[in-house]
Design a protein around this nucleic acid. Structure first.
Lengths: 155, 155
DNA sequence: AGGGTTGGACAACCACGTTGTCGATATCCG
DNA sequence: CGGATATCGACAACGTGGTTGTCCAACCCT
């Protein structure tokens, strides 16, 4: 029944976690043991044009330092590389590598499979309604992924 | 439209954050500047019978050490107190204080107000459907609140 | 009595975020 | 042209909420 507002929050969080944990787990199986949601979302933003730490920070509504750290681990893991911008030598241009793109493709595929599963239990129109209602209520607010610890450990 | 599975995840997370951020912000206004979601949820569990660190850890699907830390900060802030269990001197019984109960009441009230707001934009039946669908899809899985950093700073 | 299990404490660590400061470039403007 | 100002990235310290691992004391069972 879930009459309480707090339960509603938990339900929402539960849905998110369910999805994302499944994706991370499946990505691990498919050869990306170090995929983390933050990294996924950051790569999306980078690919969509946030090609520097400061810019990435802005897009993700996060400090540029946090963005820089994320980029550092992305580079470390080979999902992204950087080169100094010849037209502005302060900047380092960030680009998603082939491996990075491969990861993104896999991630999207898994996400979509999961969504299809939901569509199966809710009905296609049920899912559409869920998404519409959710969108109505949360608005198009900036993303802000983070949600840090949620699945930091594999367990 | 949000056709992608990843967007669905973001929508869910967005909903959760929207709710919880508002609650924390409002609690701050109402005189609980140090209320954190983890604390709220932990208090609920304690009040519902998880009266020791180990037990709380189990209920929240979290290590007993993590639970102990949470209890420590709860004690520090005066929301909870402990006493050794006379019938088992290893245990420390945890109990929510009056101030803790007050906080919980406020929190619930705010959560419910927010839920009412949602009901206003979605319609009562729309919200009910949302909750039902969500419950169907996430199941009655264990809570696992955490979602750590999400609002660690007040900004 | 004596061994296994459980509760809590302590320490080290990880992931992700924050501020603050700094030097090096770019840009704007008088 | 040249100096003030803004921006970029780096580094450091810290906060929050997790994780392991180890340890001792207390409990329970045979």
């Amino acid at each position: 029944m879930s009459r309480s507002g707090a339960d509603l929050a938990l339900l929402l969080l539960g849905g998110y976690r369910k999805l994302v944990e499944a994706v991370v787990a499946e990505l691990e199986v498919r050869g990306y043991p170090d995929a983390r949601p933050v990294l996924e979302f950051a790569m999306r933003a980078i690919d969509a044009g946030a090609d520097s730490a400061s810019e990435l920070g802005r897009r993700l509504s996060v400090s540029k330092q946090a963005a820089a750290k994320t980029i550092a681990t992305l580079v470390e893991r080979g999902y992204v590389d950087t080169e100094v911008d010849p037209s502005d030598r302060r900047r380092k241009r960030v680009r998603v590598t082939d491996r990075g793109h491969a990861l993104m493709r896999e991630g999207e595929a898994i996400f979509d499979e999961l969504r299809d599963e939901w569509a199966r239990t809710l009905g296609a129109d049920g899912l559409a309604r869920l998404e519409r209602d959710l969108a109505a209520v949360v608005g198009d607010s900036p993303l802000r992924v983070e949600a840090a610890g949620w699945a930091a450990q594999e367990s």
